[in-house]
Nucleic acid binder design. Sequence first.
RNA 1: GCCUGGGUGGCGGAAUUGGUAGACGCAAGGGACUUAAAAUCCCUCGGUCCUUGAGGCUGUGCGGGUUCAAUUCCCGCCCCAGGCACCA
Length: 858
Amino acid sequence: MKYEPQKIEEKWQHKWEKERTFKVSEDKSKPKYYLLEMFPYPSGKIHIGHVRNYTIGDVVARYKRMRGFNVLHPMGWDAFGLPAENAAIEHKIHPLKWTNENIAHMKKQLKRMGFSYDWDREVSTCEPKYYRWEQLFFIWMYEKGLAYKKRSSVNYCGKCETVLANEQVEAGLCWRCSTEVTEKTLDQWFFKITAYVEELLEYCDKLPGWPEKVLTMQKNWIGKSYGCEVDFPLVDKPGAIKVFTTRQDTLFGATFMLIAAEHPLVMELAKGKSCEKDVAGFVEKVKKQDKLMRTSEYYEKEGMFLETYCENPLTGKQMPIYAANFVLADYGTGCVMAVPTHDQRDFEFAKKFNLPLIVVIQPKDKILDAATMTEAYVDEGILVNSGQFNGMENTKVLDAIADFLEAQGKGKRTIQYRLRDWGISRQRYWGAPIPMINCDKCGIVPVPESDLPVILPENVKLSSEGGSPLAALSEFVETKCPQCGGKAKRETDTMDTFVESSWYFDRFCCPDFDVKPGLDRKKLDYWMPVDQYIGGVEHAILHLLYARFYTKMLRDFGVIGVDEPFTNLLTQGMVCKETMKCPEHGYLFPDQAAEGKCHLCQKEVIIGKTEKMSKSLKNVIDPDYLINTYGADTARIFCLFAAPPEKDLEWSDQGVEGSFRFLNRLWRIFIEYLGDIKKVSLPETGIDLEGEWKNLRRKTHQTIRKVTVDIEDRFHFNTAISAVMELVNAVYLVTRPAKSDTKALSIIREALEAAVVLLAPIVPHIAEELWQMIGHKDAVADAPWPKYNEAIASEDEITVVIQINGKLRSRITVPIGEDPEKIKADALADEKIKAMLKDAAVKKVIYVPNKLVNIVAQ
RNA sequence: GCCUGGGUGGCGGAAUUGGUAGACGCAAGGGACUUAAAAUCCCUCGGUCCUUGAGGCUGUGCGGGUUCAAUUCCCGCCCCAGGCACCA
């Protein structure tokens, strides 16, 4: 009987679907476990990254189920987004149609992978029954001041008359028409995530189930810094420039002032000066520079003197004021005091414009001279040229200077965050409409709750040119003001798709709940928070921070009762593969480069470096091909075996072959013994065993222990699978017992059943099939997770390594629990050790229990 | 540039708390089975040196350090990847 994965996989998938095996509801008698994988954008086909992510999740879901948990394992679609609009433009297909067709196809693919989802909870975010609640929350946020409008800049292509995403800007040019991209200022909607900044930061230390690196990234993103706001009085008119600095210790060395070029103050100061025209030109030029690149090395540090001065509040010296391209308008006050001696950017700027340098921090080991410095000194030291603060260590003087500034009324202590409010306006069609109305008389008025949802109209024209398609649709735009009844216009911006993904995990708890507020508090109280969240590490900051913010906000609205949405987080690495290139035809898909030759010209294929799988590099593997050739179980076990989840996974065709071989090997040994072991029962705990049977039974129990620990404690499925492989190898090596030797056969049955049960979460189809074959009536998915017996699993003897000065020299075998002194004596008495030591003096003997003896000798 | 990770045989990886480096798999080589091939089963497999041994030396990106002992801890450097607010 051959292993035919396609046949058995279809059979079990059909059964799961028919019997609704994975449907769940609230059950107070069992502990709940909410397992969630990041839902996909329906791009068309699932890719290996999805297969990996969802396989990891499915193993945990099935494992927890076997451990007796009531497991919620839902799946849905992050259905709004830019690719649907691009497809609409390129292939003249409506985004809704395109999206729904993609969903239908991907759903089929996911089902073929055998994932244990409760499909009755499927959610698609582009449906009004989903986004209507998001619109309700928007209105509540608006009422609380958590959603507000402000002017903000976007990337804009003048030729296409379209706002561009960062992704659509290639080296400063529009991706469609290669026109230079400019910045355009628009009134846009923002969510006040900064209202929760302290709580978001504080809880970074209350999430022990999150990877340290993600929390560190989030903390750095929030970027809390303690410093001072210092006033620098203007020289030729009243008022002062406010500056935020964390380095008030260098204040005496501040010799000039920098203002972000787009800061309104720039034109204000230049007004009426001879430089006004030049400054205006400079500001325009900077606005055209790409935001990302501006602060990097890509552009030269540029600036323009505004022909005016301010005064250093501590030295009283005049400081020239410059507009600069590398100062950020959004951070701090948009103005920076420049200390060229102790900041490299300021140093370069000072050299370029021949500005004065004053050393204020002297290192301990050398003397700095402003006249001969070739770079800024950025390390610690002792203050000089700093009035009464001279002689103090710069790191310890921060408080003293802050106190002094406050006492003099020249500044005050402040806390600054790097985190900015979340801009959610998109000038696009395929997103959730923002439920707001603009009335000439009443201003901004929310759509009344009773009028929700504001449905995204379907009859729009999409093209690569022109602004938002919604704005062009008068039947959508023209409306009545809910307040005065007069003519008014709807908001035509749609929401960032990160909004939908900030609460979908709540909706999964009650996907059909259709009364306000769209979330059933009782069900949420049962299921939330998510016990384990799994997804790509690329979401470590934005999505996860937004979801945390949204959760806290919904909590404050009384909709939900948790402070944090995800108790445990697993960030998985990416799937990579080598690229293949034909010298003539460029990148090739794997099947276009069979046997190392280009399918078009038969030229030798060049193997490029290994990179993240992507369509543009064509280094992709089609999951359908894998399922058709090897079956879903092979695809699943390979994804898990090739690397631990948090690491990047390098694709290998041969590795897949090996995983398939292992499943066949398991199948064969099982069939081989099936007739003999079907009738024997499992061995009793206390039976006497000798030799290889004792060893095999020990191996079985050790394997159960190892697999349990690997899955439960650290999600290291690769080592769990190796352990089962070792067990299967051990069964192959054992002497075939006679049909009458029921004792030996029972040990074999125990080993093989253990292998099947332990693999059940990983390769569920083959496991169910073998489980049924050996005579079980109930599904292995419902079987209890196996227990191991510590006494059976423990070794009687251990190998102790003997080292001399840390180098391995010999080894001895000792019974378990042997006296340490006896082991040390045995080590010194060992033939090889005696020969090597000769007459060297033994200074110390270290014994590490059950591991090694290290002899320190001269 | 900034923030965060990572670097171990020909390859993917293992070594869980500072304690036997290379589990398991792939590739490669050898053997068994077969008329033959495939498949299967068994064995070998970091490098190097010689006196071929239950051998010596060496080896976890590079250079230092701490320690009886370092893939693991500390300092400096090189390289690779992810994120950087409108891809999701």
